[in-house]
Write a protein that binds this DNA or RNA. Sequence first.
DNA 1: GATCTATGTTACCGATCGGTACGTCACCTG
DNA 2: CAGGTGACGTACCGATCGGTAACATAGATC
Lengths: 211, 211
Amino acid sequence: MAKRVEAKASLPSPRKSPRPPKRAPKRAAERIRESARDLFYRQGIRAVGVDEIVSHAGVTKPSLYRSFPSKDELAADYLRHMGEDGLARFDATLAANPSDPRGQLRVWLVQLQAKSAKRDYRGCGTTNAAVEYPDRKHPARKVASDIKGRFRARLTALAARMGARKPDRLGDALLLLFEGVYASGQLFGAGGPARVVIEAADALIDHHLKR
Amino acid sequence: MAKRVEAKASLPSPRKSPRPPKRAPKRAAERIRESARDLFYRQGIRAVGVDEIVSHAGVTKPSLYRSFPSKDELAADYLRHMGEDGLARFDATLAANPSDPRGQLRVWLVQLQAKSAKRDYRGCGTTNAAVEYPDRKHPARKVASDIKGRFRARLTALAARMGARKPDRLGDALLLLFEGVYASGQLFGAGGPARVVIEAADALIDHHLKR
DNA sequence: GATCTATGTTACCGATCGGTACGTCACCTG
DNA sequence: CAGGTGACGTACCGATCGGTAACATAGATC
C-alpha cells in the first residue's frame, strides 16, 4: 500500500513560527525518492539495487527502510508520483485552452515527440514497470495499471470533446500510437517512427470525425 | 557474439553409418533454449535466474555454461531465435498472397490482435528486452535493435507495395500502432485498446494512399 | 537538564545471484 | 583392454541481493 511517509511537518502544533521541523523532515525520504526516480527511470527498477539508491541519495539503507516498507513499495511510490505528475501535466496542457482540445493535444504531442527524440530516452516509466513486473499482484504493477487506466479514460473524454462519433475507439487508437512512441522512442532514437506520430494522430482523428 | 554452439554432429568423419552422435548433441543445449524461451518471455529476462532455467530444463548449470558463454549471451540467443521466427512468420503471411499486401497485413493483424487478447499476453519479447536492457552495448539489446530495425524495413517495403506516397512514413505509423498493441495488450488485457488496431491501421493506410 | 521522538550510522544477516573447478560416466577408437 | 573424448553432475565460489538489529545523535518539549 505504501501510504506516503513524509509530511510530518504538519503534526506539531503550529505555534512557533520560524522553522517547525526544517532539517530532518525533508532530507532522507525525499532524497531517496528523487534518487529512486532518476535511477529507476533510467536503468529500470530491477536493475537498480537499494544500495545504489541510498548511495546516490547520500543516505544509508535503514533510512530507506524507515520511510518505505520494501523496495517493491518504493517502486510503487515512484510510479505513483510519476504517474500523477504525468496525468497532471496532460490535464494542464489540455486545460490551457479548453475550447481547442485538438490543438492542445497537438501541443502535448509536440512535447512528447521532442522528448522521445532525445538520446537516452527511456519511454514511459509506467509502461516499462509493467514490462518488468508482469505479475498483476505486484505493488508496482498495480500502480502502473491504475495510472494507465486513468490515462485511457482521459483520452476517451478528450475524443468525446473533439466530437468523435465513437470516442472510446478514437481514444484507444490514440493510446496505441502513444504507447508506440514510448517503445519505439527508446528503440530507435531520434530518427525513429515517433517522427510521424503527429501526422498519424491527425489522420486517426480525421477518420473518427468525418462521415 | 554467441556463435551457435551445438552442431557437433558433423565433425566426426562420416564413416560409420548408424548413429554418429545420437544421444548428446541435442539434449542439453536445446532443452535449455526451450526453457529459456518460455521463462524469459513470460517472466522477463532479469526476473529469471540461471538456476531456474536449468531446473526447468532438467539439466545442471555447467551444461548451460558449456553451451552458452553467459546468461547475457543466452538471452541474446533467445532474442535472436524469437526475432528470426517472428520475422519469418511475418514474411510467410505476406507471401501467402503477394498480390494483396493490404489483405495479408490484415491477416497478420487479426492474429496479432487475437494473441494480444489472451490472458497472460506479454507483448513483444524483443521490445520487452529493450526495456529491460537500456544499455545499447548489452548483447541482448543489440539483438533487439537489429530485429526491430529489420521489422521496420519490412513495414516500409510493405507500405511501398501498397502504393503509399510516402512508404517510410506509413510504415512508421503502422509500427507505432503495433508497438502500441504489444504494450497495451499486456497492460489492459482482452478489452484493451488493441481491439481498434485493425480499424486504425486501415485509417492510416487510407490516409497514405489517397490524395 | 531529563526525556522523548525521529532521524542517522555501523555492521551484519540469510538467500540468491551468475559462474566454475573437478570428478564421473558412456562411448568410440586403437 | 588401454586410453582418449565429450557431455553431464556434485559441490562450491565470491559478489550482491533485499532487509534488519543495535546504537548514536540532534531537536523539541517538559
